[in-house]
Amino acid sequence: MPNTSRTDAGTGVAVPVDQNTDDPRPNPTLVMVRGLAWDVGLPVAAYYALHLAGATDWVALLAASGIAAARTVWGAVRHRTLNQFAVLMLLVYGIGLLLAFVSGDPKALLLKSSLVTAAVGAVFLVTAILGGRPLTLAAAQSFLPARAEALSERYRSEPHVRRGFRLTSAVWGVGLLAEAVLRIPLVVLLPVDIGVGASEGLFVATFVALMVWNGWYIGRVLATPA
């Protein structure tokens, strides 16, 4: 069947399209949400699923760290690049695992975990403010390796794309910092069993909200022509 050429709304480059088939170009929103679900959601889901099953915090942290490490290695081997969000989750749960060894106090561990989340949020904000390569741009390139160069070019040449990636990175930073701050009174003021559940629920809700919004917003930005 004859093919024609069309302009990719996500990258601005021409791609071949079969006239008798649907457009094969992946939807940026779905790709981002799916990638975030694997890189962020899977370790989080494993951690809390094991907790609900009665596993110790150490075992749950070890499993989440292992999944994040596997995703990091898989991305590095397949795409020859580091998946920024997988590395981020590896740091979050890896540091949490180390903290579990040095603290037997559940409240102290939760407060230290809050500091880790705040540090991660600060990294997002720094990459947004410096403007060189926001962390969400790096993540989008890891989710869409075939379009990594085109994304870099659009980020360099299109102001609305730059604003979009800087904004999403800033929102992740503010969201994670807010989650870290809100977790402190939950841990300090509530009984341990209630505080643990409330802080974990806050963590999951924050990550899910950020994932869904980030995928939707970046997909919308990439679909907007220059």
Rank of each mutant, 00 (worst) to 15 (best):
S103P: 11
L88D: 08
Y155K: 02
A108H: 12
V161E: 01
A150Y: 09
V116M: 05
E158W: 12
L115P: 11
V126K: 03
S114D: 07
R154N: 07
L151Y: 04
A150P: 02
S103Y: 07
R80Y: 09
Q84H: 08
S157F: 05
A100H: 15
L90E: 05
H160R: 08
L137I: 08
G121I: 12
L90T: 08
A140S: 09
K107V: 06
A100P: 02
L91E: 02
R156V: 00
R156S: 14
F101L: 12
G121T: 07
T136V: 15
T136S: 02
A146R: 06
A139D: 03
P159D: 15
P159L: 13
A128E: 08
L82Y: 06
I95C: 10
F85I: 15
L99D: 04
L110W: 13
F101D: 01
V87A: 15
V161T: 08
S152K: 11
V161M: 02
E158L: 03
T117S: 10
R156M: 07
L110R: 12
L110D: 11
V102L: 13
V92I: 09
L109E: 08
G132Y: 15
L135Y: 13
Y93M: 02
G131N: 09
P159G: 14
N83T: 07
A148D: 09
R133G: 12
L109G: 08
T81D: 00
A146L: 05
F101C: 04
T127I: 04
S142D: 11
F101W: 11
G104V: 09
G131K: 02
A128L: 01
R147E: 13
S157Q: 03
V102I: 15
L144P: 00
V102A: 09
R80S: 14
F143N: 01
L90H: 03
L110P: 01
I95A: 12
D105H: 05
A146Q: 10
F143Y: 14
A119P: 01
K107W: 10
V120G: 10
V102K: 06
T117N: 07
A118I: 13
A118P: 03
E153A: 13
L137P: 00
S152A: 12
F124E: 05
L144I: 06
S114Q: 02
T136P: 02
V123P: 10
P106E: 15
F85L: 13
V116F: 12
F85P: 09
H79F: 09
V161Q: 03
V102D: 07
L88C: 14
A138T: 11
R80L: 10
A100Y: 07
G131Q: 10
L97Q: 07
K112P: 00
T117R: 04
L97W: 11
L130Y: 12
S157D: 12
L137C: 01
A150M: 04
V92L: 13
A140Y: 08
V123N: 06
E158H: 14
G132H: 15
G121F: 10
